[in-house]
């Protein structure tokens, strides 16, 4: 499902969970497995890409989230959700701070939690069919995997507000124009472009490369903690559970969100 290789100083992390790399406990465990063994002394770069047709990632595994909340007594729902959020933030923070040049290759859907994962990368390469969105408000919550602070770190407030407050999606061209992605490439050409970028990173002095990243990409710690609290507070209301129920029970191919 998730596989990785280390070749010539570059890790390639391949996400291949059908239908579209939905992020739940299984994907989290795979990411933790990767992070636990990653050898940062003998590598310079990490490429994260998806092999599933639908895209990079459709976001949180909403079915698992819904079932996970429904399976426990009401008083246990909040602690369970908070544990999950703490765990996913820990994973996102670890990827964000890796002393490697991290390159995300995005094709197709890059929504919600998938977008949040992409935002942990240092460099994003968007294939022409890539589409980015934070649909969380349409479910009655806000992004909860660190997406708001990381989006604010990367792009202008006008785009941040538009994406968050309307739940709309943007294409690859717009993503490059607003500074979210640095390159737009043809469909299917993202991995090649990422490998070339990684080759460039591999040429540099490791200490300078690491110091440069640490200096220019600090973790927005206070905002990340505040986002966790906000997400859990909003998610504990009936609004989210009603939206998740509608999602789980729908078999309509059309977008179901308001």
């Amino acid at each position: 499902m998730f596989r990785w290789t280390l070749r010539d100083g570059t890790y390639e992390l391949e996400m291949g969970r059908e239908p579209c790399n939905e992020i739940g406990t299984t994907v989290l465990a795979e990411l933790e497995r990767f992070l636990d063994q990653v050898d940062t002394e003998n590598a310079s770069a990490l490429i994260i890409h998806s092999t599933v047709r639908g895209g990079f990632s459709a976001g949180a595994d909403l079915r698992e989230l819904y079932n996970g909340l429904m399976d426990v007594p009401e008083k246990e729902q909040e602690p369970r959700l908070r544990d999950f959020i703490e765990r996913i933030h820990s994973v996102m923070d670890r990827i964000d701070m890796l002393p490697l040049t991290t390159i995300g290759v995005v094709h197709g859907i890059c929504f919600g939690g998938g977008f949040e994962l992409a935002l942990t990368c240092d460099i994003l390469i968007a294939e022409k069919n890539a589409r980015f969105a934070f649909p969380e408000l349409r479910l009655g919550v806000v992004p909860g995997f660190g997406g708001i602070p990381r989006l604010r770190r990367d792009v202008s407030n006008a785009v941040v507000r538009d994406l968050l407050l309307t739940g709309r999606s943007i294409n690859a061209k717009k993503a490059v124009a607003c500074g979210l992605a640095s390159q737009m490439v043809p469909v299917g050409a993202g991995l090649r472009a990422a490998r070339k970028t990684a080759e460039q990173a591999n040429k540099f002095d490791p200490e300078s490369r690491r110091a440069c990243k640490e200096f220019m990409k600090p973790l927005p710690r206070e905002e990340l903690d505040a986002e966790k609290d906000l997400f859990v507070r909003l998610a504990m209301r009936p609004v989210l559970q009603a939206a998740l129920k509608k999602f789980v029970e729908s078999d309509d191919p059309r977008p179901y969100l308001p």
């Binding site: 239908p19 895209g55 069919n129 890539a130 589409r131 999606s169 191919p253 977008p255």
Partner: peptide, 12 residues
């Protein structure tokens, strides 16, 4: 088409 393909069509 499904919803993934619809998003792709929108970009195109």
């Amino acid at each position: 088409i499904d919803s993934f393909q619809a998003a792709e069509l929108m970009s195109e």
